[in-house]
């Protein structure tokens, strides 16, 4: 029996490293491949499709110049797409947080009429297929004349990110000790003042990571950008621009690879921050101070 233990321990010990190695290759390689191809001209890729390492003298930045330059100067206009994506994502973060912070505070702390129903409402929203609301929104926003605009897109993103933001913030606010607030209540502070002066500063790390998460959702979103903005190239987001141009054959694939690096890098950078903010979000000891 003990020999079985030894054999299994050894086998799993080896398998474990195999699994880790395979997973790292599987998750990292596509991103490495993306980065590599973004620096080579298309002819090089067709000439050496099996190359996984490009000699430094063969690297080019022309792909990035081409993808970023505006269409009027012969490029693909990704700089403009990035501005559009940035505007939409930042506006979504600001409005979503402004709306979700008080809401999550109320759900976490206050007893009010319909409190339970709110949570159910959010669950329902989370479970509804997006495509089912896409049809009426497409029709309705067309009728209102805001379909082909960044405003219309931002409104949809706000609605899509509020439930998850309230959920993240609420679970954190519940862990904050009530005693600090009670002390402030004794001093006669209103709920809104408590929220502004005590809860928000305490919850800052979670607010930051929630904001980054919302930014990532808005920056990555594709379906509604496709539904709303396809007709007007000036309004394209980076995601929409990349998908639209990759359907055609006019633009070289390695130029688009540079575009997909530009689409991915902000997310990877923010993800690095969000991960840290999440772990730093522990405010143990705030009660004592």
């Amino acid at each position: 029996m003990s020999s079985r233990i030894v054999i299994q321990t050894r086998t799993f010990g080896v398998l474990r490293w195999v699994v880790i190695a395979v997973l790292i290759i599987a998750t990292v390689f596509p991103f490495y491949y993306m980065l590599e191809l973004s620096f080579v001209p298309m002819q090089d890729l067709l000439l050496h499709p099996d190359r996984l390492w490009v000699p430094i003298q063969n690297l080019t930045f022309a792909t990035y110049q081409n993808v970023l330059a505006s269409t009027s100067s012969g490029g693909q206009g990704f700089a403009g797409f990035m501005v559009n994506s940035g505007i939409v994502a930042i506006a979504t973060v600001v409005v979503t947080l402004a709306v979700a912070i008080p809401a999550s505070y109320a759900v976490a702390r206050l007893k009010f009429f319909g409190q339970r129903q709110i949570s159910t409402l959010f669950l329902v929203v989370y479970l509804f297929p997006v495509i089912i609301i896409a049809i009426p929104l497409f029709v309705g926003f067309s009728a209102l004349g805001i379909r082909e605009s960044l405003v219309g897109l931002t409104i949809v993103y706000i609605a899509q990110t509020i439930p998850v933001s309230v959920h993240m913030l609420r679970s954190y606010l519940k862990t904050l000790p009530v005693s600090i607030e009670e002390a402030a209540m004794m001093d006669g502070a209103s709920r809104l003042r408590i929220l502004r002066q005590i809860t928000i500063p305490l919850a800052m790390p979670t607010i930051v990571s929630t904001g980054l998460y919302v930014f990532m959702i808005a920056w990555n979103e594709f379906l509604f950008a496709l539904l709303f903005l396809t007709a007007d190239r000036n309004l394209w987001t980076v995601s929409l621009g990349l998908s639209q141009l990759s359907n055609g054959i006019e633009v070289s694939k390695t130029v688009l690879m540079a575009g997909s690096v530009l689409l991915t890098v902000p997310i990877i950078v923010l993800y690095g921050f969000a991960e840290r903010a999440l772990t730093e979000g522990l405010t143990s000891g705030a009660d004592k101070g």
Binding site: A103, V125, I133, I158, R191
Partner: peptide, 21 residues
């Protein structure tokens, strides 16, 4: 206070999700 604080959220969710459904 609770109702006032959740009101904007409820309005947005109603207008963009529940009514469309």
């Amino acid at each position: 206070a609770g109702l006032a604080m959740v009101l904007p959220t409820v309005i947005i969710i109603m207008a963009i999700v529940i009514v469309p459904v």
